[in-house]
Design a protein around this nucleic acid. Structure first.
Lengths: 219, 219
DNA sequence: TCGTCATGTAAGCAGTCGCTGACTTGACGA
DNA sequence: TCGTCAAGTCAGCGACTGCTTACATGACGA
């Protein structure tokens, strides 16, 4: 089962990096096609889930022929994996570094839940809760979440060499769980009142939760 | 599109109430068959999601012929709807009443997340995050979550006539979001360390979160 | 001008899905 | 003993799924 389609070997790496384009207008640009597919797929996978999303939908959203999904990403699973890597990458570049204050970290977490610079960022968080059943994609997902946990713990000012680092990681992960749960209720279930709550409504209580979980009492 | 199959009109109501049976041994008992189907379906829907679950899987799990799903629940969506109602019912009977202390309420919430009396209770919580795409089932889901929010707020000792009841409901909903997020990370993604954390590990931090969200400062 | 190859297209295959309709089986009262 | 009907079985239908294959198109160097 070696890779026979030309350009498919590095397709994943290429599609993961680089900025998103709008819907493809004219073809004959493989890189742009791959980006358009990943962009469309991430939206669909995040909102509808893996199984409910069809490759024909994704292709139509991207304005691209269906067969190109298999050409560039080998399979639907391959495209899903590329989406995971892309989200993992974005999460990495956006987590605040340890230099920032705890209040700033918390503020950015809340902002991440409410809305984000490019519009559909909370949805991308949901991708971390979707499973394709593919073992490889699931491993990436798990690794991304655990990596995010460590970076968040570090950003909160915790030392990785701390003897009791395990409970610290657990606390950071509970904060992530809260984020994911809130985004779920807001977008997937549209439950009131949290679905229509704005930044002002959420800042207080969410900030308290994150502070309880992440703030070092010694700070 | 009126109901033509005998017994299908009250099938939903009957299947929702009553205790679960084990896998069906010998047939000729419509009520038991319905219960076995709902029981098997709830497990599958909660763990694998709606689309990834096939009616043949459910029927096999229940030890029942596939066609009976359509006979008793009209459609796959109908069975899903019955599962929702069932979960809604269980959630209602299990939420503590306002008489209990806030500490007791919090302890029960944590227990709900970690594990439950009958074994797979946290999984049933996940059903509230699954969507079938069917409008009716989604409405039940939303209503169940909002009802659960109100009962939790009441159990925490908040007055429904409180002038600022909206932020109270929001706080209760954030607690529910945290529960759902944690269960998601534990069961669906199997992310460490939260996935292997036991009651002792979770009691402290989760209790703090729930207390911050639910505890009335005037109490 | 022509050969080459990356890029994109069109049609369809094999499999699975939810669901249906005609059938059999069994319990039970007259 | 037999008629009746709920309960359950069985084979298969139409639609849709992911994916493949054969082919068309355009850019570009020799």
């Amino acid at each position: 089962m070696t890779n026979q389609t030309p350009g498919a070997t590095d397709a994943l790496a290429e599609a993961v990096t680089g900025a998103d384009d709008e819907l493809l207008r004219s073809g004959r640009d493989a890189a742009a096609t791959r980006r358009a597919l990943v962009r469309a797929a991430r939206r669909r996978f995040a909102t509808d889930g893996y199984r409910a999303t069809t490759v024909r939908q994704i292709a139509a959203d991207a304005g691209v022929n269906v067969a190109l999904i298999n050409r560039y990403f080998v399979s639907k699973d391959g495209l899903f994996e590329a989406c995971m890597l892309r989200t993992s990458d974005e999460l990495d570049t956006r987590t605040p570094n340890p230099a920032t204050s705890i209040d700033d970290v918390i503020a950015r977490l809340v902002a991440h839940v409410v809305n984000a610079p490019d519009g559909d960022d909370p949805l991308q968080l949901l991708l971390l809760l979707r499973s394709s059943g593919d073992e490889n994609a699931d491993r990436i997902r798990r690794r991304t979440l655990e990596h995010f946990t460590q970076r968040l713990a570090a950003a909160a000012g915790w030392d990785a060499d701390d003897p009791d680092t395990a409970p610290v990681l657990l606390r950071a992960q509970l904060a992530i769980a809260t984020m994911l749960g809130v985004v779920m209720l807001r977008t997937s279930a549209a439950v009131q009142p949290v679905a229509s709550a704005d930044s002002d409504d959420l800042n207080g209580p969410l900030g308290q939760v994150f502070r309880v979980l992440l703030a070092d009492p010694d700070h």
